[in-house]
């Protein structure tokens, strides 16, 4: 046999390395990663800044920032340390963001995969349910759920997941519809692979990249939703959260603006970091799309 048939092309770098290279090519995405890292560090070191309770009285009420080094970013109207609340708030925001996203993606993937793979009446039933959820405005449904379930942090996370699974479900369904008719699925079926393995091992890995990118959007949205709830006074009062801080700072916005602005900036930067990360992931996972 000629050498041409056994010749292999030059080895390509491992997929993870290639992924990182494409990601790192996007400067904005790197900035997003740095910001995200900063939020992670804040959440991790919150215990060092304030080991006992971020909601305890730490100084005189409404101390301005940078005047008293015991409370560097000042205090709110109850004398609570803003810096400590900010760090502990990062924990809550990340917790809500990550857990709600994971939950909503999990629900979305299962619903979308089943609907897209089986089609027919399964698809009809699941998609009508999805549409029912989509017709109700997100925030209204969230308010209703929190009103019913109560406003502890676990239920808020669950409620946010329940209002945000519809978009990933539709996305996964669309991917499955186009992938299930590809020949590699037939090839695997022909090997005797069961439906479950076809869905999760063959098709899902190919359907995931856009979903992963969208996850960053859901994460940003979850944080915003949690903040919005807290702003309306429906947050969990037992935890320091950025939304709670803004909600309470609102009362003294004209005189002591920093009480609301500091956590506001934290939310803006966190959401920004997710959206930059999402864009970087999009470049890294769907390289062909970007070249055009």
């Amino acid at each position: 046999m000629t050498a041409a048939t056994t010749d292999l092309p030059r080895a390509e770098p491992a997929p993870a390395v290639a992924l990182w290279r494409r990601f790192a090519r996007n400067r904005a995405a790197l900035l997003g990663l740095v910001l995200f890292g900063a939020v992670l560090v804040m959440a991790a070191t919150a215990g060092l800044i304030e080991p006992t309770d971020p909601l305890r009285r730490a100084g005189d009420p409404l101390t301005k920032p940078f005047t008293d080094w015991a409370v560097p970013l000042g205090t709110d109207q109850l004398g609570r340390d803003i810096l400590a609340q900010l760090f502990h708030g990062a924990r809550i925001s990340l917790l809500v963001g990550v857990l709600a996203t994971l939950l909503s993606i999990a629900i979305g993937v299962v619903v979308g995969a089943l609907a897209g793979f089986f089609g027919g009446w399964v698809d009809d039933v699941l998609m009508r349910v999805t549409e029912a959820f989509q017709t109700i405005p997100n925030f209204v449904l969230l308010l209703a759920l929190v009103a019913i379930l109560g406003s502890s942090i676990e239920y808020i996370t669950l409620a946010i997941a329940i209002v945000s699974w519809t978009a990933p479900a539709r996305m996964v369904r669309a991917e499955f519809l186009s992938l299930r008719s590809r020949e590699f699925v037939d090839a695997a079926r022909n090997l005797g692979v069961s439906n479950g393995a076809l869905i999760f091992r063959e098709i899902l890995p190919n359907a995931l990249p856009p979903v992963i990118v969208y996850a960053s959007v859901i994460m940003a949205l979850s944080i915003l939703l949690e903040s919005a709830l807290a702003f309306l006074g429906l947050g969990d009062p037992n935890h320091a959260s950025w939304g709670n801080m803004i909600g309470q700072g609102r009362a003294v916005l004209r005189t002591d603006w920093y009480c609301a602005v500091i956590p506001g900036i934290a939310i803006v930067l966190t959401v920004l970091s997710f959206s930059l990360l999402g864009e970087g992931l999009n470049d890294a996972l769907n390289p062909r799309q970007k070249k055009q």
């Binding site: 590809r182 020949e183 590699f184 037939d186 090839a187 695997a188 022909n190 090997l191 063959e202 890995p205 190919n206």
Partner: peptide, 14 residues
């Protein structure tokens, strides 16, 4: 067993 027409489409890219 089957050998398919389009070798790109019939091999799972991942």
């Amino acid at each position: 067993q089957m050998v398919f027409q389009d070798p790109m489409a019939s091999l799972n890219p991942r």
